[in-house]
């Protein structure tokens, strides 16, 4: 069976590479959360309160994060509006 495994093994995607790719994405995400400024949760709440005055939105639909890109700190807000919005 070793011969068969050996021949088949050549064509399979290596699982170690998969592990590394997944971890790279996950760790980057978890580190950015860990290093997020302390004011973020409070700010999120206040922004949400302002938006809620005008639009009926779901708490969960607002995503907010601070990332770094090209040497700039980027504050990213992501909000999904409800479909039937009056």
């Amino acid at each position: 069976m070793a011969l068969l495994d050996y021949l088949l093994g050549q064509r399979k995607k290596k699982s170690a590479n998969l592990a590394k790719d997944r971890l790279q994405i996950l760790l980057a995400h978890e580190r950015s959360e860990r290093n997020a400024p302390d004011y973020l949760p409070k700010m999120r709440e206040e922004i949400l309160a302002v938006i809620a005055k005008y639009v009926d939105i779901d708490d969960e639909k607002l995503q907010i994060s601070v990332d770094e890109a090209n040497g700039f700190e980027v504050l990213e807000l992501n909000l999904v509006l409800p479909e039937h919005n009056r």
């Binding site: 093994g9 290596k14 699982s15 170690a16 590479n17 592990a19 590394k20 971890l23 790279q24 760790l27």
Partner: peptide, 16 residues
């Protein structure tokens, strides 16, 4: 297993 591509290598873990 590292050589077979089935396990993260030392360099992978150091990198991560």
């Amino acid at each position: 297993r590292v050589e077979a591509g089935e396990m993260l290598s030392v360099d992978d873990v150091i990198d991560l």
